[in-house]
């Protein structure tokens, strides 16, 4: 009962503080503090409800328990992180996006190819590509190579479609201007079309960053060596060690946000001129 009161109190306090803060003029500080308080409130409610209703740890462990497990198993978590994120996701991400970028430049040179590949690429990007995972695990074995391959397949088409669209984005007037300078294909590509395509390319990179982690983790459900985040999640669920599952999810969440954040940060530096980035 005490804990339920605590949960309710946390909710009331958090919401009250946030309502007060939200009424203030919006600044960078309130923009950061308000969601932070909201997140902390949720965790407090979670803790209170789990303890208050005495929910079994097999169903939903309390945040404090997850934190304790996290601290106790850093070695395992690190091993899984290296296996899944560094070896699987990152390798696949770099090679997949790189390949898509090169293909996009090639495709862009030939109008026929572009008109043929863009609809097909859009189509494939909407398919449940993740279903390729079992096949790729068969082809490339249980280790990280197959995970990287899954990631490559998942990120390739979204990246390709975005890059091709971006390369077509420069206006006819801008291209005409380059022609009046007698600029050749490569000069136009480097000076005009690639910079103009950057917002699209980064959009693709951002979409790919979330797909990469999902691909690497889910691919491990179809077979993996005895390490990796997906492996740990599926086996720990089987052993009802949900605190470890949640610890892995925390890692996944942190990695996912950091990955996305880094790409977004680079985007802000590269495409500072684009209207979507010019809010300050």
């Amino acid at each position: 009962m005490m804990w339920l009161v605590f949960a309710f109190g946390a909710w009331a306090l958090g919401w009250w503080v946030n309502a007060r803060l939200a009424a203030l003029p919006r600044t960078r500080v309130t923009g950061l503090v308000v969601p932070l308080i909201f997140g902390l409130t949720l965790i407090a409610i979670w803790e209170g409800v789990v303890r208050g209703f005495d929910i079994s740890a097999v169903l939903l462990p309390a945040p404090s328990m997850i934190a304790a497990r996290f601290a106790a198993s850093t070695a395992i978590l690190w091993e899984d992180f290296v296996q899944t994120v560094i070896k699987g996701a990152l390798t696949g991400y770099v090679s997949g996006c790189g390949a898509a970028f090169l293909v996009a430049i090639l495709v862009d040179r030939f109008d026929f190819l572009r008109r043929g590949l863009l609809p097909v690429g859009n189509f494939v990007a909407a398919l449940p590509v993740i279903g390729m995972a079992p096949i790729l695990v068969m082809w490339f074995g249980f280790d990280w190579q197959s995970k990287a391959a899954v990631v490559v397949v998942m990120v390739f088409f979204p990246m390709l479609v975005n890059t091709v669209q971006g390369l077509a984005d420069s206006s006819a007037m801008q291209r005409d201007l380059m022609r009046t300078y007698a600029a050749g294909y490569w000069t136009t590509l480097l000076k005009l079309r690639l910079p103009a395509a950057m917002p699209f390319i980064f959009n693709g990179l951002k979409i790919a960053s979330t797909l990469a982690l999902i691909g690497a983790i889910v691919a491990e459900f179809f077979g993996s060596p005895i390490r990796g985040m997906g492996f740990r999640i599926s086996t720990s669920v089987g052993q009802l060690a949900l605190d470890l599952v949640w610890a892995e999810i925390v890692v996944a969440a942190l990695v996912g946000s950091a990955f996305y954040g880094i790409v977004a940060l680079i985007e802000r530096m590269v495409t500072f001129w684009h209207p979507s980035q010019r809010h300050l």
């Binding site: 960053s209 982690l213 983790i217 997906g230 999640i233 946000s257």
Partner: peptide
Amino acid sequence: TIPILAIAP
């Protein structure tokens, strides 16, 4: 940005 699918199982 969080790989939600990982929670599926």
